[in-house]
């Protein structure tokens, strides 16, 4: 199997890259011209986002403050909300790709599900971390047994389990199938967890998170929306690379297997028929 005939989606085509000078890309790498442009746009976006969120937007105090009166701590919401949305998006992509895999049985959907679960785990951890910091300021506690927090924490564990399951299976087809089903089961569980925790807590106390004030003013709203766009770009960029890496890894495994088979064949034809020689070479 030659790697060049199976031109992957994200890789720059070999024909265009030699003239591109410093843009020349390794055909076995994970980047492409498109992904580099995306990466640059994302970097610029992050810088602009930090400027808007940390400097340009006003603190949540004074005359047009929200009911929460968050002061400077409001800024973490510009990070927290987009990251949380991307985390749920990532798990939706994992579940949907799993369903598509079960339907179409093509490798691409499985790789997409795996890449999205990996990126999703990172974003979920970020969501919990930023939410926890926000909670420290808003409620005076790092953790509250609120429905959304608890659901997010369980989601993180569910998908850590999903990734552990993937690592435990070596056969690619079996792995894809079992992972797809595990992803779907996990995803089906999220609303049930949310409702059960919601009911569970509402028996003891009122919901602690006051909804993010919808009458949020101009520059704050812009910071929030801009953050969403930027973190969607980050997600897309990470996905491109993780997807491509999974793809290259799968090809490397196949080639390793092919090479091992060819080696054994060469051994067989060279006339050394002793079984001892065979086991020696396999070690």
């Amino acid at each position: 199997m030659t790697p060049d005939t199976s031109t992957p989606r994200q890789a720059g085509s070999p024909a265009s890259s030699p003239s591109a000078g410093r843009w020349r890309l390794d055909p076995a790498g994970t980047a492409s011209v498109g992904s580099r442009v995306l990466g640059l746009v994302t970097l610029v976006g992050i810088a602009a986002f930090l400027l808007v969120a940390l400097v340009a937007s006003p603190p949540d105090s004074g005359r047009d403050a929200s009911i929460n009166q968050m002061g400077e701590a409001v800024r973490i919401m510009y990070l927290h909300v987009p990251v949380a949305i991307v985390c749920f998006l990532a798990f939706f992509v994992t579940a949907a790709s799993g369903a598509m895999y079960l339907w179409r049985k093509s490798e691409g959907w499985d790789l997409l599900a795996a890449a999205s679960a990996e990126v999703g785990v990172v974003f979920t951890a970020l969501t919990l971390a930023t939410g926890s910091i926000w909670g420290r300021f808003a409620w005076g506690a790092w953790w509250v047994w609120d429905a959304r927090l608890t659901t997010t924490a369980l989601l993180l564990i569910l998908f850590l389990g999903y990734l552990a399951l993937r690592r435990a299976i070596t056969d690619p087809v079996a792995r894809a199938k079992r992972a797809a089903i595990a992803g779907l089961i996990g995803f089906a569980d999220v609303p049930i967890v949310h409702y059960s925790v919601d009911w569970w807590r509402s028996l003891h106390q009122k919901a602690t998170i006051t909804r993010f004030n919808p009458t949020i003013d101009g520059l704050k709203l812009f910071a929030l929306m801009f953050g969403m766009v930027v973190f969607l770009l980050v997600y897309a960029w990470l996905m491109v690379h993780r997807f491509r890496l999974q793809y290259v890894q799968a090809r490397a495994e196949e080639r390793g297997l092919d090479a091992a088979i060819a080696e054994r064949r060469a051994e067989g034809s060279s006339g050394v028929a002793s079984p001892l020689a065979g086991t020696g070479a396999a070690r």
Binding site: G161, I181, V193
Partner: peptide
Amino acid sequence: LAAGLRLRETLLPLLLLPVVAP
């Protein structure tokens, strides 16, 4: 899902317990 895997003893609790939390 975990059947037949080398790591099934440790994997099953991690997979099952969060799902049956409700």
